[in-house]
Simulated scan of single mutants.
Amino acid sequence: MDLVIEVARQGNFAAVARSRGVDPSWVSRTIASIEDDLGFRLFQRTTRRLALTEAGDIFLRRIEAIVEEFEQARDEALAVSAGPTGILRMTTSVGFGQKVIVPLVPRFRSLYPKVDLDLILSDSNLNLVNDRIDLAIRLAANMSGDGIVSKLMDTTYHVCASPDYLSRHGQVQTPSELKERDCLLFRLPGFRSHWVFSSAASEEIEVPVHGGIVVSSALAQHALTVAGMGPALLADWLADDDIQRGRLVNLFPNHTVTATTVETAAWLLYPSKSFLPQKVRVMIDFLRSEMTGRRGNL
């Protein structure tokens, strides 16, 4: 029944096969077998897409609730007998994933060895339903969508440079001096054209920036900054450890700086359901605990 629901949502066998790691012919044969058992066609087949038949639409609307009830019953029973278990499909951006999430995986697995983690690092926002995502972490000023949205942590930005860069090119005393510097830019709207500064004692200042290097990877921008290639606007989760260790210098610690809006955050997203699976719940609680500890150590 779960396969029928997924095929209806995806609209073709190939997409379902990719998400499950099986051959499309297996999906097609399985659906045909289910239709034989039911005694009616679930889908109209065309060369481009599948569409639900009238009978298939009625059937799907009833079984979605049944499948969700079954999942909840199984999850509650397993929680009593075995604790959190199952495959947790989780996604986040490449940079945040490698810098923040990957170092936490060993501890999570030691706490919950029966939860298998399928971690998908991608700078594209995957569809929670079509890609069968249990939990997503996304970075943005605000977040909305069809699923449930909850803030994981606030994020901030710093303008950073390496000590080597500053020794070769001199200190940067004020934000406006960045107009004369060759900055390392990030390939997102705003991030590569202007940075906005504000402090308790001054009004907001928008500083135009330029540079000979523009990158689409936050990790690459960070590495180039540490290598002394110029000042860069880096997220706190990317730069704070290096600032603490002296590998990077926060050029304007008394300023709030951004390229979009001051209030940015990492957000948790998960599909809307009548219940939250235990494997998702323990990951959310684990991440909140780790992020609180991380903030306390900086």
Rank of each mutant, 00 (worst) to 15 (best):
L251V: 00
T261F: 10
R18T: 05
V16S: 10
S274A: 14
T30Q: 12
S19C: 07
D23R: 03
S28D: 09
S25V: 15
V215F: 01
D241P: 04
P24A: 03
L126F: 11
D146V: 00
F70I: 08
T156N: 13
Q98S: 04
S93A: 00
R61D: 15
L60R: 12
T258G: 03
V100G: 01
M283W: 11
V196P: 01
T47K: 13
A235N: 01
V22D: 02
S202Q: 15
G228S: 04
P113R: 06
A82V: 13
V102D: 13
A77C: 09
G21W: 06
T292E: 13
H210P: 03
D118S: 12
E203L: 11
E203M: 15
S81D: 13
T46K: 11
V172P: 11
V7N: 11
I120K: 07
V67A: 14
N254Q: 12
L248W: 05
T256F: 14
A8R: 08
T156P: 04
R181K: 13
A77I: 11
P24L: 08
V207H: 06
I66C: 15
M1E: 10
L233Q: 00
D241R: 14
T91F: 00
E54G: 06
E69H: 03
F191V: 07
G11W: 02
I31G: 09
I5Y: 09
Q278Y: 13
A82S: 13
G56N: 08
H255C: 12
M1V: 03
E76D: 05
V207K: 11
A239Q: 04
L104K: 01
F191E: 06
H255D: 12
R61V: 12
V249L: 09
L269T: 15
P231K: 08
I66R: 15
G147S: 08
H158F: 12
I63G: 12
V22G: 03
L3H: 04
V80D: 10
R294N: 05
F275Y: 10
G190K: 01
A14S: 14
M143S: 08
W26T: 15
A15M: 06
F96Q: 00
P106V: 05
D164Q: 12
E203N: 15
A259L: 08
R168F: 11
V280R: 08
V105R: 10
C183I: 07
G95Y: 11
V4K: 07
N127K: 02
L269R: 09
P253D: 01
R41A: 07
K279Y: 08
T30S: 05
G56M: 09
T261H: 06
L276F: 10
H158L: 01
T46D: 01
R187A: 07
S289F: 12
V129G: 04
R295L: 13
P103Q: 04
G212Q: 11
F286W: 00
E54I: 14
S216C: 00
L52W: 09
I137G: 00
